[in-house]
Design a protein around this nucleic acid. Structure first.
Lengths: 127, 127, 127, 127
DNA sequence: GTGGTCTAGACCACA
DNA sequence: GTGGTCTAGACCACG
């Protein structure tokens, strides 16, 4: 019997310049990848979430749907939305996150004529 | 007397889903950081660029102005737009690029409970 | 829940010889520095402002975006544009305004061989 | 018999963002007000000036004409351009400079709810 | 409804 | 010719 997670106040950090729903997707995805949201955990309902985050319900809905599409959430009619119990899907998502991020950084590095390693060194230089 | 750079066909890779001017900024910024566009080089005029990229002049203008704000370009009325000769500004921009990218990746890593090094290793794991 | 400010008729004094958006920036900046526009206040939307000032929406937008770059406004997609609640940023802007103005005048004074104090005295001399 | 002034290299400080001719007007006007350019002094010709400053002759011409309009320069066919010997005109120009600058600063101060004195104090505050 | 991007085309001052 | 501002009007994603 799954416990229901409760969003902590201030758990979501919001940048007004970017789409809200996108930021929710990213941050919930990270919580699942990290294990903060364990497989099988029940998420607060769309309405509850919207109320506690002071946000439009459609925004939350959009985020939940996107996470379903990623096979990270599953919802059951009338019961709510749950973190998937398919740990393989979670592992895949986690790895995909890493690959995407690293590839992005490699491309940036290449565009200024550096390797990833050199880019990191440059970012750490004192002066 | 500075030579005028000429955009190569296909030099700009465009993703229609993101703001055009933003992508021009990024790519020109990278060319300056890499040295493809040397200090003092004259850029193609707003109109020329617009024509060769099949884009509205105001879009090009917006990109040029943003790059001026970053101290990477300077423009002289009636003469054209030039890569800054302030090499310190170029170095700063280059380093800022690196720092921003690395910090972003570190934050992503932290959000799933990893260090940057671990994130890179994860992205390289077979299967 | 922030109240929405309404531009008073004749609130903006416009000199047709200078860029419109620049004058909007200056005058809104002054209203924020003075407190006429309090932190958190919602500004009239881009379209409303454009209509009431008889000006193109993109011109208003340019002004709002410039003020965002100065950290004096923040905008939320679908909600509107607001005076920042970061009072430190407002104080900084206010002080920067003063410093810039005074420095400018000091430079002018120096260029004709006077101190700032002497310049002010000269401007006040009868005949 | 008037001596001919010679521009020192680096005598003019140029801001690419503003009209060149306007900056020449300002700076020559200041030199006259300060006495660096004494009454009766002969200025370098338009062509000489243009060459030594690496600037378009029409730009120099425009500046000289504007200064004639201000009664600070006089030109005689085939002889060149001279600083006026009408010292009253110079004094007037000097005072006008001061008045304009001070009035501008007072207006800025008023727009943020300060007096001129308070504006100067604010600009000098440590923190 | 909101902010934001883009186009097409005009007009200006500057060099 | 150059950069730069402005208009009129379309279209988009977001909430």
């Amino acid at each position: 019997m799954p416990s229901t997670y409760v969003w902590n106040p201030g758990q979501f950090r919001i940048d007004p310049a970017r789409p809200l729903y996108e930021q929710f997707v990213e941050q919930i995805r990270a919580m699942i990848a990290k294990g903060t949201l364990a497989p099988g955990t029940r998420l607060p309902s769309v309405r509850e979430t919207a109320a506690s985050l002071r946000v439009n319900p459609t925004t939350v809905m959009k985020a939940y749907q996107e996470l379903e599409r990623l096979d990270l959430l599953v919802s059951f009619r009338g019961q709510g939305t749950f973190v998937t119990e398919d740990e393989e899907a979670i592992r895949r998502s986690r790895k995909e996150l890493a690959i995407t991020a690293v590839r992005q950084m490699e491309e940036l590095a290449a565009s200024i004529g550096l390797t990833l390693k050199q880019l990191i060194e440059l970012s750490e230089e004192k002066e």
